[in-house]
Simulated assay, not measured.
Amino acid sequence: MKKITYLFVLAFLSFVGSTMGQTNDASAFHGAQPTKERYKAVYQLNTADTNVIRHALANIQNALNDPRLKGKLDVELVVYSGAVAVYKKDKPYFEKEVTSLQKQGVIMAMCENTMRIRKINRDELFPVVSYVPTANGELIIREQEGWAIIRP
């Protein structure tokens, strides 16, 4: 028992001694470093709130512009429920941003379940939109594939 106590005390003192000289120097921190070849993120959007939609689109653009992720990022925007407004031709408030993001490789996915419930036809949406059977199914599959799920 004395030997175990002695080893524990030695380990504790070694740990304390190794951390004594450390400081929290904020200028030394530069964020997480990219160690993978590819990164994947799926953004989910389910509200018609224009501020939330603008925020989500800006977040996607910010991620694409991050120098650590440049050329290494796959992004999908999954839209369902009231967020269908982001893809509607008759309310083109977001057409410029959506088209720009799609040209940068972002998958613009629309939930067909929402379309069925809300009686929306494909011709009512921007031509850059892709379709998934259900948003929830898409999010479940993407998460299991290792995609980061972002909820703006």
Rank of each mutant, 00 (worst) to 15 (best):
R68G: 15
L77K: 01
K3D: 11
V52I: 12
L77M: 09
F126P: 03
N46H: 08
T99V: 15
A135H: 01
N136L: 15
K88C: 01
T50C: 03
M1V: 10
G71C: 11
Y43P: 04
G17F: 02
K2T: 12
N59Y: 12
I107P: 00
E95G: 07
A11R: 05
L125C: 03
T5D: 03
L77P: 03
Y39N: 05
A148W: 05
M115T: 08
Y39G: 07
A48K: 13
I4E: 05
A41C: 07
W147T: 09
K89Q: 04
P152D: 06
K88Y: 01
E95Q: 15
K2C: 01
S130L: 05
S130C: 00
T19F: 10
K96G: 02
Y131I: 09
E76Y: 11
A83L: 11
Y39A: 04
E37W: 04
I140F: 06
D123C: 06
A58E: 14
Y6H: 14
K36P: 05
N62P: 11
I53W: 04
L125Y: 07
G82F: 10
K72G: 05
M1Q: 14
T23P: 01
E95C: 00
K88P: 00
W147Q: 13
D66Q: 14
Y80A: 04
D66M: 10
N62A: 15
T23E: 15
V129G: 09
K88N: 04
E138L: 02
Y6N: 08
Y87E: 04
V52D: 02
R118D: 12
Q33T: 12
V106R: 15
L69D: 06
A26L: 10
S18E: 06
S27W: 01
E145M: 15
Q104M: 14
F126E: 00
A28S: 15
L57Y: 07
Y93A: 08
